[in-house]
Design a protein around this nucleic acid. Sequence first.
DNA 1: CGTCGTGCTGGAAACGGTTGCACAAGGAAC
DNA 2: GTTCCTTGTGCAACCGTTTCCAGCACGACG
Lengths: 336, 336
Amino acid sequence: MSAIADVARMAGVAKATASRALSGRGYVSDETRQKVVDAAALIGYVASPNAASLVTGRTKSIGVIIPFISRWFFSEILESLEQSLLAEGYDMTLYNLPAHSAERERVFDFFLARKRFDGVISVGVELSDAEVELLHRLGRPLVGIGGEIPGVHTIAIDDIAAARLATEHLISLGHTDIRHVGGDQVDQMDFAVHTKRLTGFNTAMHAAGLSRDGRFAPCAFTVPGGYETGLALFGNPHRRPTAVFAASDEIAFGLIVAARELGILIPSELSVIGIDGHPYAEMFRLTTIEQHPRNQARMAVESLLGALEQPSAPVTPGLTRAPTNLVMRSSTSAPR
Amino acid sequence: MSAIADVARMAGVAKATASRALSGRGYVSDETRQKVVDAAALIGYVASPNAASLVTGRTKSIGVIIPFISRWFFSEILESLEQSLLAEGYDMTLYNLPAHSAERERVFDFFLARKRFDGVISVGVELSDAEVELLHRLGRPLVGIGGEIPGVHTIAIDDIAAARLATEHLISLGHTDIRHVGGDQVDQMDFAVHTKRLTGFNTAMHAAGLSRDGRFAPCAFTVPGGYETGLALFGNPHRRPTAVFAASDEIAFGLIVAARELGILIPSELSVIGIDGHPYAEMFRLTTIEQHPRNQARMAVESLLGALEQPSAPVTPGLTRAPTNLVMRSSTSAPR
DNA sequence: CGTCGTGCTGGAAACGGTTGCACAAGGAAC
DNA sequence: GTTCCTTGTGCAACCGTTTCCAGCACGACG
């Protein structure tokens, strides 16, 4: 393999000059630069990132910790992260770590502890103080998406407000028998997303004087999860609610499929609202609160790379709220 | 940051001995090894992979090229790849490259050409000869998933056989008016998956003496794609087929949702079969051909790591067939 | 008693870049 | 005519490992 020494020799300059010519740092005359560039192109020289990292301490590579890949929110985040990072010349290395996994300690000690990454983005994973501390000690900036991590800049929507807005939408249509179908606590999601959405629901219901027990139905955070819960929830016509707020669009789809199977008309007999802005929402005509994960990912990359360029001014720990918006379709209406 | 020199000094040995003690290569007395290990633990020493890679040429890191993240097949592959690689101590760096993307050349020239990866796994992406050549010249093994790449070991199901099996299942039930809903050519998938599944369909239909024109309906490879196509295909009761073979489970779900909206009973009025083994298949009671992507990913990792350990015996170029199996549920039956 | 093999250790040379420092040439400022 | 700053270049050190080679002690073997 060709090294920079070969390029330098071929161009008739010193290694140092060749390095400066190719990296653009320091003074090099245009004439010399051209000679070096030509020589490099001729022998197909590519710099070894390892050697460069060794001396600069920078790897141009970002580690991403994420608990799921296949769920919609997470795959959107991932696609967007990869795009943004690649555009800035960064590699993205992926660690798919379920929240309560045995692999987790190993990844932190063995993979992240090494100096392989310039920074880390943690998506929907709650980090322990020790884990945050480890990353900070390495001098590596850390940005979170999807929940708050103490001492770390995180990007997240306001889950409580979003849930409240969704519930208020149903209330404003005149519904009084409203249920919330959301994640159960054994789900591997962190950040108490479930709890927050439930809190927003309860707050809105309480404010409208509608609070009562038994309005929350726990559910796996997937389409089949919503489906199963829907069958159980809508099975008995006498105890059926007129409206349901699903904690995610995927749950909402499951609920809609279940309702349709039971012959329940949407929205006249049952209103359904979700949270996410999933691409299938259009097809199911689902009213939902969009949360634009790709946008959240872009914000995270921007924050992280900003911190990398300004190592002096560390990322302000704290929360940046990502915007959400209500999209009305025909899965919600006034009750009959 | 602590370097191995610190460990060596603390343990009262030379750098070389410390390195041997920690890596397990070469002779070190038990007593000395223990001293080194203790010292390393004491100061929390972790080796710099960059420095090690520089001299060994190995990075313990694998690059993965994949055209989608959010589609089921691909996210399953990704999850499984990550798991298998992590278990073997390898990092996974992700390049999400749509087949016809402008980024592509850049990724090959700028990212993959560097010596950052020990090997590359290409999922569902057709590589040009030049691209394969580039990777080979770097001495990096390459394994494919999901289609054939000339001169490269690839893992794939037999798409033609799977499509034939699905079609034959419908034929054996007594259907004669069968349609195939599959990917259109503008879709960004490579490897002519679409074409192969269509070929399998045509072969089976021809063998049964059922071939006629107009039996193929092109469609985006997604749930909404299947939904739109379903609405169009089933809208006219007089021209409605009695059975449909969908090129993917996701398309099949869309077809089923569309059929249900149109009040068509499944399976009595319409049989639907898919390919994939998507987890939602159970919920839609979809008969399908399972292709176990996680298994395919494991096979790919095994092949790649095998090639890395035996650089002498390069990967045998060629195709390894991943197994598939028919799972019957209640979306298919004899026509009325 | 020389020679050889084995187990163990240390010195030093890689690996392939970047960068601090010295130095030279030329123009601007005084 | 000094002095100083800017531009351009080269030498050499350095980043943190691994590994080649040499050397030493010690027992076995002829």
